[in-house]
Amino acid sequence: MKTVITSSGENNSAQFDKRFGRAAWFCVFDEETKESIFVKNTNTNANNGAGTKAAERIVDMNVQKVISGDFGPKAKDLLDKFNVQMVIVQDNDVTVQEIIEKLKA
């Protein structure tokens, strides 16, 4: 199962990005292989629809779970439609690695 964690940087030690549609990177963590790859979000500066585009990307990558700070209504509708689980983490000071550790546990 694949999980996306919104990240402010390109590696596991980067800070978790609480924004969903405008997160800098998406960390795609594979729970079977325990490996993570980083995908750049190309819509961080979009005028409109950043959340929608992020949700489209998530579904396209066949991800089942997303961890972010919050989800806007349009992104939420789309993720719901494809049964992607949304997990809200409100910690400001947490790295991607720390979230991955919790997933492994």
Binding site: N43, N47, G49, A50, T52, V59, D60, K74, L78
Partner: peptide
């Protein structure tokens, strides 16, 4: 230009917000 269209070929999904 407005990111209003979602098309997901893998699941045959196309929608305009």
């Amino acid at each position: 230009e407005f990111n209003a269209i979602v098309v997901l070929p893998t699941v045959s999904f196309a929608e305009i917000n």
